[in-house]
């Protein structure tokens, strides 16, 4: 097994959900209605669990530091999250669109990982895929409602948020040098294959929402090499505050 390639893949997957979990949790107490406040907080909690499970695999099987150190003890340049998850929540339209595009990608990725040749990951995938159904269902319900059953304004706002989010969303599927080895050994299907499947899934949902899928955009890249958006540094300062004061704190 190409250990460096495995670490690269699992760290970038875990970092994406960790950072997006933090963004989602920023809606706690501020959601437009109580149910949405709870929904984003619950998705955040699920995602934090997924990140922790991935860091645990990295720790137990690949000798990486323990999950708390991975989540709270790394410098910005050592993080591998993509810019898409780092962007601020903005208004609710953008948060919903990001929720949809991200969870469609997660659903495709984790569905495929159920067949991974690496057993601990395949087992985790069976579990996580069932949870992601709920994330995708929630996002899809709102996108379809605001796109095809709302007002002209709601539809225009969803389309505008979608156009803004799109190039960033494509950054989820940045291929890495070690990926070819992982594809060859059946560890995962590769980013290009996942992206193709994601586009089909997203296209179907957007059609129901009468929204138009953006085309011909270049992906926003950089996070996988440690070059982040301007928004990650302040997020890390906030997210790691307790840990930096007392790394042994329990809460």
């Amino acid at each position: 097994m190409n250990q460096d390639a495995v670490k690269d893949l699992l760290v970038r997957m875990a970092d994406d959900v960790l950072i997006l979990a933090h963004r989602h949790s920023e809606w706690t107490g501020l959601g437009p209605v109580l149910e949405e406040d709870i929904a984003f907080s619950s998705v955040a909690q699920d995602k934090l669990g997924h990140a922790q499970a991935l860091y645990a695999i990295l720790h137990e099987h690949f000798g990486m530091p323990d999950p708390d150190v991975m989540a709270f003890g790394r410098a910005e340049a050592d993080m591998r999250s993509c810019h898409f998850v780092e962007l601020p929540n903005g208004e609710y339209d953008f948060s919903l669109v990001r929720h949809l595009l991200f969870d469609a990608a997660e659903y495709v990725r984790w569905s495929a990982l159920r067949e991974s040749s690496f057993e601990p990951l395949a087992k985790l995938a069976h579990k996580i895929q069932g949870e992601l159904k709920y994330h995708l269902y929630h996002a899809q319900t709102w996108i379809v409602q605001l796109g095809s059953q709302g007002s002209e304004e709601s539809k225009a706002r969803m389309q505008s948020a979608l156009n803004t989010a799109w190039p960033y969303a494509l950054g989820l599927f940045e291929s890495r040098p070690g990926d070819a080895d992982l594809v060859a050994t059946g560890f995962f299907p590769g980013e290009d294959a996942l992206r193709a499947e994601w586009e089909v899934l997203v296209q179907g949902i957007l059609a129901k929402a009468t929204l138009t899928m953006p085309h011909d955009h270049a992906a926003v890249l950089g996070g996988r090499d440690g070059y982040h958006s301007e928004f990650l540094a302040p997020l890390l300062v906030e997210m790691t505050e307790v840990y930096r004061i007392d790394p042994s704190a329990q809460w």
């Binding site: 149910e35 949405e36 709870i38 929904a39 619950s42 998705v43 909690q45 269902y137 929630h138």
Partner: peptide, 13 residues
Amino acid sequence: LKSPFGPTLCRSL
């Protein structure tokens, strides 16, 4: 169904 997310991760509203 009011929401697929409730007061704990395993509940819906």
